[in-house]
């Protein structure tokens, strides 16, 4: 890392331990959050960002304690509102690497409105949404991503609400980077976090996360040892959509409807190829809506397209106004367009 150009200050070589603070981590033993924390601590040193330029902003919930466990700048705000604080931070200083840590309740219920507008503005910040399909910090109530029929203390006879699909929500807001990853696959998490960082614009990452106390094994039907090959499809840019043991199954389009076909007997040209850069929303929506019971759940980068970022445009407008009118002066500020003098 000592090869930085002479004109630029060298980014000091960082390692995982630089991001581990001295205080104790206090999630429940076995919580999926530990693996996510570990993966982010592994990803950060590889991003080439000085440690002081990382800012983690969170709301309220188990996942939102995250900033306290990262030795960076961190702001633990209020329930659902991290996107607005993060917007202020990023607009104030676009050089910062800003990460919003949120959960299904914080991000999609109480903070749904802020998340929506964060996504559509295409601010260059990263959102890590820990989806455990339950309210954990308040000890087990159904969340906006809980499947219909989820039995909790507030839904003893089963929840009635249709769950939100976080990736589809992000795509609905035309997010420029939408990805999915899972707490049981550190390698995939690290790669996904690095891809999120590399993307210039909003990066939305849904992380399937297990709540060992209140919603244990919620994702096992997808990522459990016995199910994962059949139930997940790992996306790779430019590669065909294959899954199953030995990648024996593939996805093909029949009109506008996807179907599962046998990879070996289907002509390669008919199998869908992963193209996250498609500007048309159709393909990414198709991926986001695939899932149980008929399809595997796509994991990885679902969509990645380029668009100008909000904070860049904001600062361009400031630069343009300054170029056009010159830097503001006291005379202009105080006198305005029209004055008169009393002798």
């Amino acid at each position: 890392m000592a090869t930085a150009t002479p004109n630029l200050p060298a980014v000091p070589e960082l390692s995982r331990k630089d991001f581990v603070p001295s205080n104790e981590v206090r999630w429940c033993p076995g919580c999926g959050d530990y693996a996510i924390l570990n993966s982010l601590q592994r990803a950060f040193p590889e991003l080439g960002v000085p440690r002081e330029n990382f800012v983690l902003v969170s709301g309220i919930g188990c996942s939102s304690r995250f900033p306290f466990y990262m030795n960076t700048y961190g702001f633990h705000t209020i329930h659902g509102r991290a996107p607005s604080v993060a917007t202020g931070v990023k607009v104030a200083n676009p050089d910062l690497s800003v990460w919003i840590i949120t959960g299904d309740g914080d991000g999609l219920s109480i903070g749904g409105n802020h998340l929506l507008h964060l996504l559509r503005r295409n601010i260059n910040v990263n959102v890590l949404l820990f989806n455990n399909r339950i309210y954990g910090l308040t000890k087990g109530q159904y969340s906006p991503t809980s499947p219909v029929g989820t039995k909790t203390k507030t839904s003893p006879t089963g929840s009635l609400e249709n769950p939100l699909n976080p990736a589809l929500f992000a795509l609905g807001a035309e997010a420029t980077f939408v990805a999915r990853t899972l707490d049981t696959n550190p390698k995939h998490m690290v790669e996904t976090f690095k891809a999120a960082h590399a993307h210039q614009g909003i990066s939305f990452v849904e992380i399937f996360q297990n709540c060992v106390i209140f919603n244990d094994s919620t994702w096992d039907s997808i990522y459990g040892k016995d199910n994962r090959d059949e139930q997940m499809l790992f996306l790779e840019t430019g590669k065909p959509l294959l899954f199953g043991k030995d990648k024996s199954k593939a996805i093909r389009l029949n009109g506008l409807t996807p179907e599962v076909v046998d990879a070996a007997t289907t002509p390669p040209g008919e199998i869908l190829t992963h193209q996250p850069g498609q500007t048309s929303p159709l393909y990414s929506h198709l991926l986001a809506t695939m899932g149980q019971p008929d399809f595997p759940t796509p994991m990885g980068v679902i969509r990645q397209i380029e668009k100008p970022t909000y904070e860049t445009l904001v600062h361009e407008q400031i630069a343009q106004a300054t170029a056009k009118r010159g830097p503001g002066t006291w005379q202009e500020l105080l006198h305005g367009n029209s004055t008169w003098t009393v002798a």
Binding site: R81, S84, T87, G88, V89, K90, V91, H114, V314
Partner: peptide, 20 residues
Amino acid sequence: VQAEDEIAAIGVALGGSYAG
């Protein structure tokens, strides 16, 4: 920044203050 609501407006301002 014209925020999406009153809550976000103060949140953005507070984030800005926090960042200097």
